[in-house]
Computed example of a mutant assay.
Amino acid sequence: MLLQLKNISKGYGEKGTHSFRQVLNELNLEIGKGEKIAIIGPSGSGKTTLLNMIGALDLPNSGEVVFSGQNITGYSKKELANFRNQHLGFVFQLHHLMPQLTLWENVLLPLLAQGKISTDQKEWAEYLVKKVGIWEQRKQKPAEMSGGECQRTAVVRALINKPQLILADEPTGALDENNAVALSELLIQLSVEENLTLITVTHSSELAQKMDKKYLLRNGKLETDKIRSSR
């Protein structure tokens, strides 16, 4: 089992007051290596909060996040940063590329934390950039690229450290229909080819249908969605 969420609870505000809001309530989830799941639900249901718990960007008020048998909720800030850099890749609705850097520089950016970039790492980056069809744009900056090209760059950046788990938060939300379909297919293809676990939060029924499983987040808990993927 790659990931286990055990009785995860998260709320905001001062507990016991009218301002307190319970977002996740003793939520449980198990995900195996290579699984692809979608998390759906209405706005404000806590989908991004849940993704932040899984991605160690925030910590639960109670419960455990267990990754490859290790309870990461007890990690220090430095340990959490190392965990994210070594094991996770993130794709957000907005690409968050550095505007002053070229496509190629943005892709290599996560590797700089490790020091010198090796020849193998550069070859991997080149393979990915060519794979997603943006090699000709490698010297361009984000302002010179289309939204689809920027989002493809963000996907490559998420994969550059060869993570075990990709977390995608509304990855197609800022794209037009054609680019959204293309990016959805790209995420699925890369996750299959590299045997990656993929968790995506999405409002797109088309993207959700392509996942192995769908979960509905409601009242702070996950429910298995009745409509299963045809894949």
Rank of each mutant, 00 (worst) to 15 (best):
M1V: 11
L3F: 04
K6N: 14
N7I: 09
I8P: 09
S19G: 04
Q22M: 14
N28K: 06
L29R: 14
L29V: 12
K33W: 09
K36T: 07
I37Q: 12
I39M: 07
P42V: 09
K47H: 06
T48D: 08
L51C: 07
N52Q: 14
A56L: 06
D58E: 14
S68H: 07
T73F: 08
T73H: 12
E79T: 10
R84A: 08
N85Q: 15
Q86I: 01
L88D: 05
G89D: 06
V91Q: 01
F92Q: 01
H96V: 03
L97F: 02
P99R: 05
L101R: 13
L101M: 13
T102P: 10
L103V: 11
W104T: 10
V107N: 08
P110I: 10
Q114T: 12
G115T: 13
S118H: 13
Q121L: 10
Q121R: 15
Y127P: 07
L128P: 12
K130I: 07
K131Y: 08
V132D: 09
G133P: 02
G133I: 03
E136M: 04
Q137F: 06
K139A: 10
P142E: 02
E144W: 00
M145E: 01
E149I: 00
C150A: 02
Q151G: 01
Q151K: 00
R152Y: 03
V155F: 04
A158I: 06
L159A: 04
K162C: 06
I166C: 02
L167E: 01
G173E: 00
A174N: 00
D176Q: 00
E177D: 13
N178L: 09
L183R: 03
L183F: 03
S184V: 04
S184L: 07
L186F: 03
I188Q: 15
S191F: 08
V192I: 13
V192E: 15
E193P: 07
E193I: 06
N195L: 09
T197W: 04
T197G: 04
T197N: 05
I199N: 07
I199L: 09
T200V: 12
S204M: 05
A208H: 10
A208S: 10
A208D: 08
Q209R: 15
K210G: 12
K213T: 11
N219T: 14
G220Q: 14
L222R: 13
I227G: 09
